[in-house]
Write a protein that binds this DNA or RNA. Structure first.
Lengths: 139, 139
DNA sequence: GGTGCCATTGATAATCAATATCATTAAGAT
DNA sequence: ATCTTAATGATATTGATTATCAATGGCACC
């Protein structure tokens, strides 16, 4: 049998209960959360831990592309468990609910626009903020 | 003659030489600069000032939509003098040279995508990072 | 030109997220 | 069970940005 290599952890990293508590908290949440949020969520689930541990877990997960990170213009970074592969987010500005977006046309547009201006190897960041149906109703 | 109202300053704000030194530094620069950068640029131009003054000037300019702010995933915020109106940037990852981009098709795509998912009043952030022609040649 | 009000400035302290340090604990291979 | 070494927690530190507050200086009005 070949060794499982699909979700290989970082070389030399260990599976600990703090780390999986963070993963659980992220998995149960459908919205973006700050490191402090996640500390509270894990604590409420019976897994209290130091904030530095949360940051380290998020760092590892982010390096392994297991979470997406949002850097709002001010305040703390926000984390969310995501599917693999390149995609963007549609985030409700009120409840934080986020939907993943992957659109080939957009990717092509970026490529084309960059090339038109003589730029090569374009990377890009895009986030859309709006008001979701629920919040538009009751907000 | 009608009073000049195109670039009206914030109500109750005053034109000072520190503030115009920052505006000059921003105007002369074609790339994004950090607050520290701008402090040094102004100082080199014969207008030394405290860092807090730089931040306050940038805050005021940003509130008046006179500068665009970039928040890279880590480190300091970057500022640039910009044309009015909604637009995005194509930034060289090596030299920082930035080009403004305004594309109606993209704006429509954002609107359409948001609406498809039931989101209203979509705002968005988009920045493209690539390697410009010069840097590709010599980098 | 002089006067007065109040925004601006600089020096400094405070804040706040995120990271570094380091002794202790605990995975996981042997 | 033992050993190696990553993970953890408590704490200190960093680094960007903002708040505080007395002193200064625009600028509107006389």
């Amino acid at each position: 049998m070949a060794p499982e290599a699909e979700r290989l952890p970082l070389a030399g990293s260990r599976a600990t209960r703090r780390r999986s508590a963070i993963i659980d908290a992220l998995t149960n949440a459908s919205t973006f959360h700050s490191a402090r949020d996640l500390q509270k969520l894990a604590s409420d689930a019976g897994h209290p831990m130091a904030l530095s541990t949360v940051y380290r877990a998020l760092q590892a997960l982010s390096a392994a592309n297991e979470v997406d990170v949002l850097h709002p213009s001010c305040g703390e970074a926000l984390y969310r468990r995501c599917t693999l592969g390149h995609h963007h987010h549609l985030v409700c500005r009120q409840c934080g609910q986020a939907t993943e977006i992957a659109d080939e046309a957009l990717e092509k547009w970026v490529e084309r626009t960059a090339n038109q201006h003589g730029f090569t190897e374009p990377h890009h960041t895009l986030e859309i903020f709006g008001t979701c149906q629920e919040c538009a109703k009751f907000g």
